[in-house]
Amino acid sequence: MTVITDKRPRTWPARLTRRLSSGVVQAVLVVTGLIWITPLAGLFLSSLRTERDNAGSGWWTALAEPGQLSLDNYSTLLADTGITQAFWNTVLISVPATTLVVVLSALAAYAFAWLEFPGRDALFLVVVALLVVPVQVGLLPVAKLFGQLGLFGTIPGVVLFHVAYGLPFAIFLLRNYFAEIPREMLEAARMDGGSEWRIFAQLVLPVGRPAIASLAIFQFLWVWNDMLVALLFADSASQPLTVALQSQIRQFGSNIDVLAPGAFLSLVVPVAVFFAFQRHFVQGVMAGSVK
């Protein structure tokens, strides 16, 4: 007797993956990817051309005349102390703001998910309510507060603002992920004598690595590409790369020989960070969609 079993994928991610594996769909995705990457290629080629070449013809002409390409724009850009200082300011803002948000939100999320304390649910509702508060609402009050504390126009002031407005979403995201951890796993660890700190460090963090990596990528990209907060809270000595490039537009107009390499330099770092953590990012996005 032959038993026929249905081997078709039953979950929607599996069905979607099966459909995307067809040759026609893959060809469409390749074409779409090429269309999306064309502006990036144009920016890169423009950054390697002189201002006269960029003004006289489109960037695609460099494909037929590679002699137009050189690294002179990057040499000039890196020789500008204002741009290099802005680049390091961006690093000094983005790395601490991302690290603090990830660490503090992971601790708070574990407490909201698995620790019992008075007012836990009410406090978590406050955190959720803060998600709907737009950044623009807090700009002027926080600017006044930072002025009184001596933090206005400093890198720590910009970092603190990003941390404060990044924590509600981070806590909400990680709390929901940590809450999916089987209770039996945590109870077994407690019965073996594990402290809450040890359970958090050696059990919860490894299990929650995909969600933490996704959060780190989101937070880093948001802070690295931010201009609104930095434009208000940073001065000329602490301004990040986005504000420095914006000031170049204001002062010199369409100086593409400075803006193109600066924009590409600003783009390379977040792209590298994304590709470094893309495996964990995909796991975090797909977590819970497949049973």
Rank of each mutant, 00 (worst) to 15 (best):
N176K: 11
W224E: 04
F146S: 13
A213W: 01
F220H: 02
L221P: 04
V163C: 07
G150V: 01
V163W: 14
A201C: 06
Y165C: 05
R183E: 15
I171P: 06
V159F: 03
L149N: 00
A143Q: 15
A189C: 05
P156E: 01
L203F: 07
E184A: 13
S195K: 01
A216I: 11
L173F: 08
P168K: 07
T154D: 12
H162I: 14
L186F: 10
V207G: 09
G153N: 07
V229A: 06
E180C: 13
A164C: 09
V207W: 15
A170H: 01
E180N: 13
L203Q: 04
N176W: 05
L205A: 10
F178A: 13
P156S: 00
L203M: 12
V159P: 10
A211S: 14
F172R: 15
I181F: 13
G147E: 09
V229S: 03
R190L: 09
A164T: 14
F178I: 12
E180Q: 13
A179M: 09
E184L: 13
M191Y: 01
E187R: 13
F218K: 01
L160D: 02
L215C: 06
P182Y: 03
G194A: 05
L149F: 04
E187P: 06
F172Y: 08
K144A: 14
W224C: 02
G150C: 03
L186C: 15
F152R: 12
G208M: 05
G147T: 07
S195M: 00
V159Q: 06
D226S: 08
D226R: 06
T154R: 03
A201H: 04
A179N: 10
V158N: 03
N176A: 08
E196A: 00
Q148E: 15
M227C: 02
P206A: 06
